[in-house]
C-alpha cells in the first residue's frame, strides 16, 4: 500500500523536497500578538505529529547550526530522550501511546518561560529578565557565566557553551522575543508547525482555550493543563492525552521557586535593618565587655583605642 501511494504521488511529480523552502516568510503573522501582557504558547501534544519542523524553524531563526531542513528529518532519534543544548533551543521527544501504538505522543520541549522564573531570581546581575510580554530573555553582555541560572531552573532548561573559552553564553529558547516585538511575527516554531499544534496568544486566552478543549473532548485530554499552576505558572502550556509524568514532564508543585529565597533576601536587605541591628548589637557587646575579665597574657596594651 505504501509503495503504491508513493508511486501515485511520484507519477504526479510530487515526490521531492523543498516544500518548506521559505521558513522566513510568515504565513501566520498575527499583529495583535506582537506586544502586550503575558503572551503564551499552548502546545497540544495530541496534534503534534513529531515532524521536528519546529526544531528546524528554531535552528534557522536563531542561526544555531545552520543545517538544512533535511538534517531534521531523521525521526528515529525521537525514541531516545534528548535534551536541549547550546545549539538546540527546542527538541521533540516521542513517548509510547498505549491507547494507539501507531500514534506515539510527541512532546516538544523548550524554555517554559515561567511567570516567576527561578533563573531571573537567581541571576545576580539581571542578565536574565522577564520581558514585558512574558518572555524570559538573556543579555549576554551582563552575564558572568556563573551558571547559577542552570542550578536554579526546575526544568533544566538553560544550557551553556562550555566549549567556548572566551565568550560563552547561557543558551535557551528566547520565545523569539526579537521576532515578536520588533518584526511583528509569531515565534518561529509556531509559525512553521504544520498541524499548528502550537498556538501563540495571550496566556489568559490560551488557558481559557485549553480548558474549553478539555471540556469539549474529555476523552482526548486528561484534565490538566501543564504550566497553568506548575512553579507559579509558565507561559508555555501543554495539553496531553496521558499523565504528564509519562511524557517526560516533572511533577512540580504550584509554588513559585523565588518565593523560597526572595523573602529571605528581602528580609536581609530591607533597609539594611537586620545587618545594622547585628552590627549595633556586636558594637554594644564590644563596649560592654571592654574591661574583659580575661586580660591579655604578657601584654602591655589593652582596649581598642590603644595605639603604638
Amino acid at each position: 500500500m505504501k509503495v503504491s501511494r508513493r508511486g501515485f504521488f511520484q507519477v504526479l511529480g510530487l515526490g521531492a523536497a523543498g516544500a518548506v523552502a521559505s521558513p522566513d516568510r510568515s504565513d501566520a503573522s498575527s499583529p495583535s500578538a506582537s506586544l502586550g501582557e503575558g503572551m503564551g504558547m499552548l502546545v497540544d501534544t495530541t496534534e503534534c505529529i513529531g515532524c521536528r519542523k519546529c526544531e528546524y524553524a528554531c535552528d534557522h531563526a536563531h542561526e544555531l547550526t545552520g543545517q538544512p531542513p533535511s538534517a531534521f528529518e531523521d525521526l528515529s532519534i525521537l525514541d531516545t530522550p534528548r535534551r536541549m543544548d547550546e545549539d538546540s533551543f527546542t527538541v521533540v521527544n516521542r513517548y509510547p501511546n498505549p491507547d494507539n501504538p501507531e500514534k506515539p505522543i510527541s512532546v516538544k520541549i523548550q524554555c517554559m518561560h515561567c511567570l516567576r522564573p527561578a533563573c531571573t531570581s537567581a541571576c545576580l546581575v539581571g542578565a536574565l529578565q522577564v520581558a514585558e510580554n512574558g518572555a524570559v530573555v538573556y543579555e549576554a553582555w551582563k552575564c558572568l557565566g556563573c551558571r547559577y541560572c542552570m542550578v536554579a531552573c526546575p526544568f533544566g532548561v538553560p544550557t551553556y557553551e562550555y566549549h567556548e573559552p572566551f565568550t560563552p553564553q547561557v543558551r535557551k529558547c528566547t520565545f523569539c522575543h526579537e521576532r515578536v516585538t520588533h518584526e511583528g511575527k509569531i515565534p518561529a516554531c509556531a509559525e512553521m508547525c504544520p498541524p499548528m499544534a502550537l498556538t501563540f496568544g495571550q496566556r489568559s486566552e490560551l488557558l481559557e482555550l485549553a480548558h474549553k478543549k478539555i471540556a469539549d473532548n474529555p476523552e482526548r485530554y486528561i484534565n490538566h493543563v501543564y504550566g497553568e499552576h506548575e512553579v507559579g505558572g509558565t507561559s508555555w502550556l501543554y495539553l496531553a492525552p496521558r499523565e504528564f509524568e509519562e511524557l517526560g514532564f516533572l511533577k512540580l508543585g504550584p509554588g513559585a521557586l523565588p518565593s523560597l529565597t526572595e523573602p529571605i533576601q528581602h528580609a536581609i536587605f530591607k533597609f539594611g535593618i537586620p545587618p545594622l541591628t547585628l552590627y549595633g548589637l556586636l558594637g554594644a557587646m564590644m563596649w560592654a565587655y571592654r574591661n574583659g575579665d580575661d586580660p591579655p597574657v604578657s601584654h602591655d596594651m589593652e582596649g581598642e583605642t590603644n595605639d603604638a
Partner: peptide
C-alpha cells in the same frame, strides 16, 4: 511526516 510525501517540489 516528510513534506515531500504530499507537497509538489
Amino acid at each position: 511526516t516528510d513534506c515531500a510525501v504530499c507537497h509538489q517540489p
